[in-house]
Design a protein around this nucleic acid. Structure first.
Lengths: 146, 146
DNA sequence: ATTACTTAAATCGCTTGCGATATAAAAAAG
DNA sequence: CTTTTTTATATCGCAAGCGATTTAAGTAAT
């Protein structure tokens, strides 16, 4: 019965979808203290590594469209985390730069990774879930590697 | 330098976040033909397996809050895919049932899994990405299993 | 030089996702 | 049999996320 696949498939793609949201939830309490969201945190990680990047480069790194990233950056600008200015060489480009506040957040974020790890140990997202997720990925990889 | 972790960590959580969106994007063209979205498709998969389920059970299966699932189900009701009615035994519960149209969609969706597989082979989401994602998960599992 | 094409951001309209809160029914406590 | 607590849904406001379209700057073609 081909309908069976409509269940099996659930075990391939749904776990990734669920894990993504569970991970974001785990980050939330730490990011709340910095007053940012998970996507904003990702933007900051990019700028902490290389400041002064065009909107499009950030969008590509995060695999997001400009219609998602533009309003996101505007909100960050409004919060005083980043500045946006037109590039001199190419007037089409908008360069995104960290403000002093944006750079200070790096220091505050420094402990998040290890705090998150210990939180994950007690949270909703259990190791078993991740192992299941990994098995799903294995199936998907086998499927695609045929 | 503890700042290094702010890069490493990117390699743990970001791939899951990115994969989730890439997978949804791959589904989109197939689901467009059925006139539904990916979360709606997940709801349908649950109801195809067991029709007539309370809102809360669907929410739990998808790990979504009712404030997400309620409007989602209302939109599906508006499209004529499902019916919602108060339970007789427990007036708090709202039972969600497939309409004829909702059941017909199962037949139309039957070929999605295999079509998706072949599409993934040519799409943005490459096997290499999945393998990287799996390695990230391995790291995370090792981290959590210490 | 003018026209056509491409690229970079932005805007619009819609769905999803969630924290906080509200409402009402059912269950537990007194 | 009231009062309190819990449970099931729903509502509100806001931040993503994306398809479709727009605007403006840069590039290539004629």
């Amino acid at each position: 019965m081909a309908y069976e696949q409509l269940k099996l498939e659930n075990q391939l793609c749904f776990p990734v979808y669920a894990a993504s949201r569970l991970i974001t939830r785990e980050y939330q309490p730490f990011l709340d203290r910095l007053g940012i969201t998970y996507p904003q945190y990702l933007v900051l990680m990019i700028l902490w590594e290389e400041d002064g990047m065009p909107v499009n480069d950030i969008a590509k790194k995060l695999i997001l469209n400009t219609n998602t990233i533009t309003p996101l950056l505007k909100r960050m600008e409004h919060q005083g985390i980043v500045k946006r200015k037109r590039s001199g060489e190419d007037e089409r480009k908008v360069i995104v730069q960290l403000t002093a506040k944006g750079r200070e957040l790096q220091e505050e974020a420094r402990m998040i990774p290890e705090k998150l790890a210990s939180r994950l140990l007690e949270g909703d997202l259990k190791v078993d879930d991740l192992i299941r997720l990994k098995e799903s990925l294995d199936s998907m990889i086998r499927l695609l590697s045929r």
